[in-house]
Simulated assay, not measured.
Amino acid sequence: MLPSFALVCLSIAIIESLAGILGTGIILATCSSSCIGSKSWSSYNMIMISLSSSRFILHSWTTLDLLMNIFYEPFFDTEILLTAAKIIFAILNYSSLWFGGWLSVFYCIKVASFTQSFFIWLKQRISTFVTIRKDNLGVLILSSAGIGMPLILSVVSSILLIRSLWIHTRRMQNNASGFRDPSLEAHISAIKSVCYFLILYIIYFI
C-alpha cells in the first residue's frame, strides 16, 4: 500500500492528466470537425490534429499508468512491462515535442515578414513539409528519439517570429497618430502569446 503522501500526489497528477485529456480532446474535436468532408486538409489543421492527438493519447496513458500505480502496483514489478511502459511514454512524449516544434515553425513561416529568398521559398512549400503519410510513420517514430531538434526548431522559429513582430510593431508605433490602434494591440498581444508559448515549451521540455 502506498503512503498517504504518495496517494495525494498521485491523485493530484491524475486530476491534472484528466484536465489535459479534456483540453486536448476539445482541441482535437474542433480541428477534426473542421476537416470532416474536406478533400484537402490545411497544414495548420494537420499539425494541430497531430499535436492534440499525441497529447490526448499521452495524457490518457499517463492517467492509466497512475491508476495502475494506485490500484494495482504489482503490475509494474515485471521488468518487461515496466520497460514497455517507459518506451510508450517516451515515444508519445517526444512526438508531442516534435509536433509542438513544427507548430512554432509553421507560425514563424506563415506570420513572420522576411524578405530573404529562403523564407519566401519556405512559405510557398510549407504544406509539403508537414504532410504526414502512412509510409513515413516509422521514420517519425525513429526521429522522435532526437528530442534536441524540436527544441532548437521551436526556440529559433519563436525568436525569429518575435523579432519580426517586434520590428513591425515598432514601425506601427512610429506611424501611430496617438489614437488607440487595435492592430497595434493585436501585435503586442501576439508577441506576448509567442513568449508565453516558448517559456511553457522550454519548461515542459526540461
Rank of each mutant, 00 (worst) to 15 (best):
S104W: 08
F129N: 06
L137C: 07
D135Q: 13
L153I: 11
T83K: 11
L140R: 09
G146C: 15
G148E: 07
L151N: 01
I147R: 12
L161D: 02
H168D: 15
D77I: 01
I126H: 01
L82S: 14
I152Q: 02
L161T: 02
F106A: 02
T83S: 10
F119M: 06
I126A: 04
I120L: 13
C108P: 07
R163S: 12
S113P: 00
R163A: 12
N136K: 15
R163Y: 13
V155D: 00
M149D: 02
F114L: 08
S164A: 07
K123M: 00
D77A: 12
T131V: 09
Y107E: 10
A145C: 14
V155K: 06
G100Q: 08
I152R: 01
S143Y: 14
F76Y: 14
T131D: 09
I80M: 06
L122Q: 03
I167M: 11
L92Q: 02
W166K: 13
I126Y: 04
G148H: 03
Q124K: 07
L160F: 09
T128W: 14
F106P: 03
S127M: 11
I152H: 02
L142S: 14
A84Y: 10
G101K: 10
W102H: 07
K134L: 01
I88W: 08
L82A: 14
W166C: 11
L142F: 13
F89E: 14
V105P: 08
F76V: 12
Y107S: 03
S164W: 06
I80C: 00
F99C: 08
I162M: 06
K86S: 09
S104N: 07
L81M: 05
I159D: 03
I147V: 13
W166P: 04
W98M: 02
V111L: 12
K123P: 09
Y94Q: 15
L81R: 11
T169L: 13
T83I: 09
Y94V: 05
Y94H: 14
L81S: 06
